[in-house]
């Protein structure tokens, strides 16, 4: 019973931390656009939080650059369990056009365990909403 309650609460209230790991900025701007009145992520209980301590879901954009790698891992460790990582955009999924570049590590999954991938280059705000909701539904 309590387990089900906890589970339900997790699905209904994901708080999000946005992390740029070397993206081209397009996904980041689109994530901000998703918070604007037009798309309104708060409908799903999603709030954008500034500190890793408050977050449940880490939204990563961009291929991880060599310089950024350690920092990303450190931020990931600061987030309290249970935590989920969402790779947003083609770069975060596989490296996209930067695949094979000497300073990018490929997708986020090379460094962090990823729970959901949202494709698009860049993602549209509606795709972001769709992806996060799908991630939450998969937890059921």
């Amino acid at each position: 019973m309590i387990e089900r309650l906890v589970h339900w609460s997790r699905v209904k209230s994901p708080w999000v931390l946005h992390l740029n790991t070397g993206a081209c900025n397009a996904c980041d701007i689109e994530i901000l656009a998703a918070l604007m009145p037009r798309f309104d992520l708060e409908r799903f209980g999603i709030l954008l939080k500034g500190t890793p301590r408050h977050a449940d879901v880490i939204i990563c954009t961009g291929p991880i650059t060599r310089q950024n790698r350690d920092r990303v891992v450190r931020i990931y460790e600061q987030v309290p369990d249970p935590k989920f990582v969402v790779a947003v955009g083609a770069c975060a999924m596989s490296g996209c056009v930067y695949r094979g570049a000497y300073n990018s590590m490929g997708g986020i999954d090379q460094v962090l365990p990823v729970n959901a991938y949202i494709p698009g280059c860049p993602i549209r705000p509606d795709a972001l909403i769709d992806g996060v909701v799908k991630l939450l539904n998969s937890l059921k």
Binding site: T65, R66, Q67, G100, A101, Y102, N103
Partner: peptide
């Protein structure tokens, strides 16, 4: 370049190849 970049490697030289 990154802080941990090895010294003496210059990525834009033609004889430098990146082994992924």
């Amino acid at each position: 370049l990154a802080d941990d970049w090895p010294a003496g490697e210059y990525p834009l030289r033609k004889d430098w190849h990146f082994n992924r």
